[in-house]
Design a protein around this nucleic acid. Structure first.
Lengths: 270, 270
DNA sequence: GACCATCGGTTCAATTATTGAACCATTGTA
DNA sequence: TACAATGGTTCAATAATTGAACCGATGGTC
């Protein structure tokens, strides 16, 4: 382990429970010598990765981090950032993973990852632009959006499948409420026969949805249990992705996801 | 300079113009040996401060930065406190409000608030690091700093715009004196064409500047009158913020701000 | 008020990790 | 094919890191 790694590891000891750490505490946490820790800390302060309170002499995370994080947000295209992440997810679940963004009321494909463990798998077409309310992604997005957005979506005739009749506003709102309570949306054969999917929103810094992450799989793969397993994967994954994109998961959603991560049974969605 | 500092300095070479850097380029920019740079880069990748594109092998800023910056946001209370304060100010004046800190002689962005009343507004880039003396914030900071700090700033070639000739020490000192007399600094199209700003210092418990608060607006919005209106807003606001951060406004500054708050006409700044 | 513990910080010789010139492998180009 | 440029590796020489001991300040205790 290099000196650099050892020094940077000091930063990892900060947490919401320990926002400020003193020299001795750092020494204890890292298990290294006091002089060494002190040298490292001062180097980090010098570089702006830490700052030291003049009075208590305690250390806390420094301004350089915000600067660099901003820089990362500005310079790293989210597509690539997200690409690496969903690649991992896809590898774990062995299914097709999508990331979509809502542009107007069109779901636009941002990127996808596919690590096929199974002979039977879902094909897809990145150019497709299905009506928002007909997809798990679209519903997941809207379920966590502001009422005005939902209202606008319902008012727009392009959001529901043109083959169907206009969706009943009340029924749709109920579905969205259920989704918001579950923490995720799903879809079984509704858009394309034989294809099911599970979807979850990704948030920006204001806590409003900016994108969705979804897993698509052949319906034959399994029933509610299989679906819920995937949903739990998504609920563990979405916070990571949200953070990577510089966003924040709203507290209420965080709570739901944490709770659902443990439960085994869930109510049906309309 | 410690190994840690040298390694971390590598991260500073990333900019909006150079979001991805290769080994050789890093070597050139840092002026160090290739092997050393490579060691450092891999250490940083290991720690998540950088990530490497698998195909091009180019490096870019990594996810650990977002994580730590978030942690800082959550654990450093002043940021949120200041955030709430400037949010109000921004709402009142209807312009972009910034808070910066001086780290070394770099102005670093702490937070900002933007409540756009106008169709035309100032965009900004939190990653920019302009020369201190070229900004209203920097000059406001230095105008209220100790003579030694000013002398050090003038001695540092990085504090003035490299496109210009070295600033005349006498002229700069005069400008700073004027600013100190006015109670605030301003800037009209000097850093970015079409962008003006007004800035004011925030003090710590010792009465030395710790940060600056500034308002940026499109130059077209108005002339000296408009600018002075914003300045008065700042002079009313800065004491609040200083107090909120546990600082004290020096008596002489307090006097100036109180006086200027009533006057309607002010002399020009160089 | 002397005593002790704890804290942040410093010193300096011993050690250990860092360094960098030279080298290798790969890719793209003339 | 030769050449240049890229990313990466090796290993002896070297320079930086290390840590036991020490200092000064603060704060609680008898």
């Amino acid at each position: 382990m290099s000196t650099i790694a050892r020094a940077l590891a000091l930063l990892d000891h900060f947490s919401p429970d320990h926002p400020r750490l003193g020299l001795t505490e750092m020494m204890r946490l890292s298990g290294r010598d006091k002089a060494t820790v002190h040298r490292h800390l001062t180097a980090l302060v010098q570089a702006g990765y830490l700052e030291q309170a003049p009075d208590t002499r305690a250390y806390r995370l420094g301004p350089a981090l915000t600067r660099l994080a901003d820089m990362r947000r500005h310079t790293v295209p989210e597509i690539e950032m997200v690409g690496a992440l969903i690649d991992d997810l896809s590898r774990v679940v062995g299914e097709l993973v999508h990331v979509n963004r809502l542009h107007g009321f069109d779901l636009i494909h941002l990127c996808h990852a596919e690590h096929h463990n199974h002979p039977v798998r879902v094909s897809f077409d990145a150019t497709e632009r299905p009506p928002v309310l007909a997809t798990a992604s679209g519903r997941a997005f809207l379920a966590f959006s502001a009422p005005e957005v939902v209202a606008a979506a319902l008012a727009d005739p392009g959001t529901w499948d043109r083959k169907d009749a206009a969706p009943d506003g009340v029924a749709v709102r109920e579905t969205l409420a259920t989704i918001a309570a579950h923490g995720f949306a799903y879809n079984r054969d509704t858009l394309r026969l034989g294809v099911s999917s599970v979807a979850i929103p990704v948030f920006d810094a204001d806590g409003t949805p900016v994108a969705t992450c979804s897993i698509a799989y052949p319906t034959g793969r399994g029933g509610a249990d299989f679906r819920d397993r995937l949903a739990r994967h998504l609920m563990a994954f979405a916070p990571k992705m949200t953070v990577a994109m510089g966003g924040v998961v709203p507290a209420r959603v965080q709570k739901i996801w944490a709770a659902q991560g443990n439960s085994t049974k869930m109510a049906d969605q309309a």
